[in-house]
Design a protein around this nucleic acid. Structure first.
Lengths: 104, 104
DNA sequence: CTTATTTATCGTATATCTACGATGAACGAT
DNA sequence: ATCGTTCATCGTAGATATACGATAAATAAG
């Protein structure tokens, strides 16, 4: 009798799940839209546009940063956030690949 | 002075976040791949292919069902799961729309 | 009817997520 | 040096996610 149960998931599956997790809250979806619309944006500007406290927005930004979907550059006391187009492209490709495999 | 802080998120943002949440675990990514490869599949078959207990796999299936990405049809004591291509297409379109807006 | 098979659900433990106020750290301006 | 601005982090509370064994429910087969 052979053990067919695999030990873990593939790096690709884990990576795609991480991307999806970063996109799994409306606030983070909206943050990406805001950043792309303004091209570059201070944290404070984002807080103004979301129904959330500054600390909470900062946490959401951290999660988007962690997977590389956005980048924050320090500019004096402020921080300029912007979309990381390269990572975003990769994310899009990974998802497109999944959809192609799964249905379309 | 005007209050610029919105009260909540849009239905579209919430919906997209829900889809992303359903895809936010490697097991669920893999389940979708398995189902599409076999076209139709029993729960037990999926359990064999994942490094998880039956109860855990059942929970993951439930989450995919909840957002409509898969459908389970009862067949005697078994349940035949398959990808819901329609919902999958919609999910793909929603994500594509986001990526188009945000970067690509 | 009893038994075996298949799957969902329950109960439970641990971890992560989400949200906020308070505080700290970094910087520019005075 | 002090103050105001901006943002991250800490501490905390409650909710949700993840995993499993045990059990229940439904059906097919004997």
């Amino acid at each position: 009798m052979v053990n067919t149960k695999p030990q873990e998931f593939s790096a690709e599956e884990i990576n795609l799940a991480d991307i999806a997790k970063a996109l799994s809250h409306p606030a983070r979806i909206k943050i990406l839209k805001i950043l792309s619309a303004k091209n570059v944006c201070m944290c404070g500007d984002i807080v103004e546009l979301l129904p959330l406290a500054q600390a909470t927005v900062s946490q959401h930004l951290k999660k988007l940063k962690r997977v590389g979907l956005i980048v924050g550059e320090i500019d004096g006391p402020k921080v300029c956030y912007c979309v990381n187009t390269q990572t975003m492209e990769k994310a899009k490709e990974s998802l497109t690949k999944l959809f192609k495999k799964v249905c379309c």
